[in-house]
């Protein structure tokens, strides 16, 4: 049997007293494209952020390529999981992330943004990193913006630089956290095109989005989050066209109300 590229096993996350989700299990195979949808506050982004440990899960394991992240140990009869800096940094190189607010480094050019991880994390020589970064910018159609600072880029261009920055690290999995939610409607298309291009390369990705139409066309599987977990999942046709459970049905109906 194939080991899944990524497995989430019994993942719990709480903020204070409030459980965001509990007992989330998920297998992601190489080449899967998983769209995660749900109402605000359903824990979509938090789930995504637990995969690269921008949030620490309170329980459960993240297993990459069969290797659990962190080491389990017994302490006073209770087992707890320790995550050391080094192993999290290595995990994050293999799992790229694109943020809603782009989070480009404003004091660096577009090229500098893409080079940063190559220089500091991969310890690449400057010339080589520059070439590599330039190629990544070209891939997202921004070869001519290499020397521009983020302040001089449009939202769509910023997000494409952010995608190039993530790609430069050659991640095995890409996480997109509402990548178009902060964009002017007119700029959404160029970012979705860039993501679509990555999808057609067969990359493994998880995408939190409100763009239901895009999720339908891009995803191989759709997860609907509600009531503290994965409430319904299946192919885009199953979940988005013929949802079986009431909350999913209401959510989809709400999104369709104004389509024409």
């Amino acid at each position: 049997m194939d080991t899944p590229l990524l497995r989430l096993a019994g993942l719990d996350k709480r903020f204070g007293d409030r459980a965001v989700f509990s007992g989330v299990d998920l297998d992601v195979k190489r080449g899967d494209r998983i769209a995660i949808i749900g109402a605000s506050g359903s824990g979509k982004s938090t789930l995504l952020r637990c995969i690269n440990f921008l949030e620490r899960p309170d329980a459960g394991r993240v297993i990459l390529n069969g290797e659990p992240v962190g080491t389990e140990r017994q302490r006073a009869g209770v087992s707890e999981i320790r995550y050391d800096e080094g192993s999290l940094n290595r995990l994050r190189q293999r799992v790229g992330m694109v943020f809603q607010q782009f989070n480009l480094f404003p004091h660096m050019t577009a090229l500098g943004n893409v080079m940063e991880g190559l220089l500091t994390v991969k310890h690449m020589a400057r010339a080589q990193a520059g070439e590599r970064a330039q190629a990544e910018l070209a891939r997202v159609g921004l070869a001519d913006k290499a020397e521009a600072y983020p302040a001089h880029l449009s939202g769509g261009q910023k997000q494409r630089v952010a995608i190039a920055r993530a790609l430069a690290m050659e991640p095995e999995i890409l996480l997109f956290d509402e990548p178009t939610s902060a964009l002017d409607p007119a700029l959404v298309g160029e970012v979705l095109d860039a993501i679509q291009a990555l999808a057609s390369e067969g990359r493994t990705m998880l995408l939190v989005t409100h763009e239901i139409g895009f999720a339908y066309h891009m995803a191989t599987r759709v997860l609907f989050l509600a009531e503290g977990g994965i409430y319904e999942q299946g192919t885009p046709d199953e979940v988005l066209k013929a949802p079986r459970r009431p909350l999913t049905q209401a959510f989809i109906a709400g999104h369709r109300r104004f389509s024409f």
Partner: peptide, 15 residues
């Protein structure tokens, strides 16, 4: 978001 973006590409806290 700045430190999150840096950590997300694998940079250490010090870097």
């Amino acid at each position: 978001g700045q430190s999150e973006a840096a950590r997300a590409i694998g940079m250490s806290k010090a870097q």
